Amino acid sequence: MTLSADQTVEALSAAGEPTRLRILSLLAGEELSVMEMSRILNQSQPRVSRHLKLLTDSGLIERFPDGARVYYRLSHEGWARRLIDTILDLLADDAGEADHRQLDTVREERQAAAASYFERVAPEWDRLRSLYVSESAVEAALHSVVGPGPFERVVDLGTGSGRMLTLVGKKARMSIGLDLSQNMLNIARANVSRAGLDKVELRHGDIFATRLPGESADLVIVHQVLHYLADPAAALAEAARLVAPGGRLVVIDFAPHQFEHLRDDHQHRRLGFSDTEIAGWMVEAGLTPLAPVALPPEDHGAERARLTVTIWSAVRASEAARKTA
């Protein structure tokens, strides 16, 4: 897409202000809420919101509500990203250093709170997760989505208690589970051993940088992980990178909901994801999305029944399909 002269001037005018340049630099790292940017920039929320509106109106950034909060990210439009990249490349290397140090502090606080939560709840993880959705329904649907196998290699990112590995491990020649919580990994090891699986490797690892070879797994699972993350799109891109030709990525998470208390009580950052959002990320990562499977509430009398779980899946074209395309 090309821009008219007026559109070009509007975009440059929107970016051409010190605070708005700082905002673009911050959003180049990850999506952020108004509250987070206000803290990092040390400016009032109304003032930051005015800058964000100008950047949004120009098409340089995107605004998306998530429950009671609003988040912002760089535009997905190619022209906007090229313009932003050019502007940021021209900035001095030390420009925005203080902002990014403050952003690192915000990230560290988030990570510490999440780590503390997961270490605390690890012994009761499966029970807590079942408060929100029927695990038996999810597991039955998962078997239908992934098929009978066999799989050469299964990778479970954010494996938690290892439940996904115990479900599909018998269909796999070998499996790998990654998690940042050592307590969770210990529980996963016990569960995997109890299930009689001996070809499972459990590693301390980061979903954003797995250090696993690209296109090396024919099944990659991301189960109830994305809603904890500051940059779910980046995590999904890393998961997609691991999918081998002919392989499949399966993402299981909540559909959009309004339970704000989950942010404070259970460290949820995002209140679910839409089909369009997940499918868009899958396409950007080079995969072909398949039809999502929604598991709606079973019982309107309980909190857990008011949350819908969706299973999204996508495939990477096989080598034969690539050659004939």
Rank of each mutant, 00 (worst) to 15 (best):
L3I: 00
S4E: 02
S13N: 08
A14P: 10
A14I: 10
L21Q: 11
L26S: 07
E30Q: 11
N42H: 11
S49G: 14
R50H: 09
L54M: 06
D57S: 15
S58L: 07
Y72F: 12
R73M: 00
R73A: 02
A80F: 10
I84S: 15
T86V: 01
D89R: 12
D89Y: 12
L91V: 10
L91D: 14
D94G: 06
D94N: 13
D94Q: 09
A95R: 08
A95F: 14
G96W: 04
E97R: 01
R101G: 13
E108H: 14
E109N: 05
A112F: 11
A113I: 02
A114E: 06
A115C: 12
S116A: 15
Y117H: 08
E119I: 00
P123H: 05
W125A: 12
D126E: 13
R127H: 02
R127T: 07
R129F: 14
Y132D: 07
S134G: 08
S134H: 09
E135I: 11
S136R: 13
A137L: 15
E152N: 07
V154Q: 05
T159K: 06
G162R: 07
L165Y: 07
K170G: 15
M174I: 09
S175R: 06
G177W: 07
L178H: 11
L180K: 09
M184D: 15
M184H: 09
R189E: 15
S193F: 03
L197S: 09
L197F: 12
H204A: 03
H204M: 03
I207P: 12
A209I: 00
P213V: 10
P213Q: 12
P213I: 14
L219R: 04
L226E: 07
H227R: 03
H227D: 07
A234Q: 15
L236A: 08
E238R: 07
A239F: 08
A240Q: 06
V243P: 01
A244Q: 05
G247T: 01
G247Q: 01
V250T: 07
D253W: 08
H257S: 02
Q258M: 11
R263M: 04
D264T: 14
G272S: 01
F273M: 04
T276F: 13
G280D: 08
W281K: 03
E284Y: 03
E284K: 09
A285Y: 00
A305P: 13
S313C: 12
A317F: 04
A317T: 11
K323E: 14
K323A: 15
